[in-house]
């Protein structure tokens, strides 16, 4: 038992910061805010105002096609959402997809990252192969997988001798195909984040462990993974929030049928398809709050280093 976690390496500070006079500080401050302001306005303007409007709309029973019937209902829309079985069943579906895809991605992504980390030749080819799913349009990927499994156009049943199995006719199999498409598309992102984490594991520690006779598995669980903790947590946080918002794949593959509807899809259908802006806004606000809760869970509960996530270190 000699393998140990590396002491958290102090990040290198900004190179050569020099003392400045007071006048310069004020000018610098003004310049700083001037440079940052446009980006800040663009980010906040497009999110804060519509979000506030969503909160306001959520207090009404309001359908776009029946403007005369609009009336104030207070918080009752929230009561409807939170006591609705459909909401909770969609939450369950979404959480199931999130947990399964993120877990599989973590394992597969780590395997990919290890392969790339140890790669001597063919680096370029593997990197390209891995980046294609990352760059491809989600809708395109979803179509590719949908057509592969579909009863009429698909080759999967044919190749594996599954006869007329209707993949999109059952909840479990439909969710399986949806998850598979998601995993295919997003594992590359995960593996690249993990690759960066792998590169940070101090080589000396691994060598020392090997000299001390630690097995491959021991080195993985005692040295490599603990030293990658920060990278893994950040990758998990981003992928979890991303997976929780899943929409495109479900839209293309099943359009929410066979119990595959997710919370994002639910919000979309209320506001855009049904144009029930009141109830739909309540769903949107609840969805937003649930995302915030997940983020808080990661940051407070699992201790994700926010400074790291912010790219400060």
């Amino acid at each position: 038992m000699t393998a140990a976690t590396a002491p958290a390496a102090a990040p290198p500070g900004p190179v050569g910061r020099v003392q400045r006079s007071n006048g310069r500080t004020r000018a610098e401050r003004r310049l700083g805010w001037t440079l940052v302001a446009p980006a800040l306005v663009a980010m906040v303007g497009v999110t804060a105002y519509p979000l506030a409007r969503a909160v306001w709309l959520s207090l009404y029973s309001y359908r776009l096609t029946d403007p005369a019937g609009r009336h104030f209902v207070g918080l009752s829309n929230y009561g409807v959402v939170l006591t609705d079985r459909l909401w909770w069943s969609d939450v369950l579906t979404t959480v199931a997809i999130t947990v399964v895809t993120v877990a599989v991605e973590l394992v597969v992504g780590f395997a990919f990252a290890s392969v790339m980390h140890h790669l001597v030749f063919g680096r370029r080819l593997v990197r390209t192969a891995i980046l294609v799913p990352y760059g491809i349009i989600t809708v395109v990927a979803a179509f590719a997988w949908r057509y592969a499994f579909a009863l009429d156009t698909g080759f999967v049943n044919h190749v594996f001798g599954l006869g007329n199995f209707a993949w999109f006719g059952h909840r479990g199999s439909a969710l399986f195909v949806i998850s598979l498409a998601e995993i295919w598309k997003t594992t590359p992102f995960m593996s690249l984040l993990l690759l960066a984490g792998l590169a940070q594991v101090p080589r000396e520690l691994l060598e020392a462990a090997e000299v001390d006779g630690a097995t491959r598995t021991q080195r993985l669980f005692r040295v490599t993974l603990p030293n990658m903790r920060a990278a893994i947590m950040v990758a998990l946080l981003f992928r979890t929030l991303d997976a929780y918002r899943i929409f495109d794949t479900v839209f293309v593959m099943t359009n929410g049928a066979a119990g595959t509807e997710t919370v994002s899809f639910l919000a979309y259908r209320q506001t855009i398809t049904r144009t029930a802006l009141g109830l739909g806004s309540a769903v949107s606000v609840v969805l937003f709050v649930s995302v915030v809760l997940i983020a808080i869970l990661f940051i407070k509960g699992f201790g994700v280093d926010l400074a790291r996530a912010r790219g400060e270190r």
Binding site: L151, D152, N164, F165, G169, A257, A258
Partner: peptide
Amino acid sequence: PGLATADEEAARA
């Protein structure tokens, strides 16, 4: 077998 996903064209096929 595809009843739950059949539309007009799937039925015709």
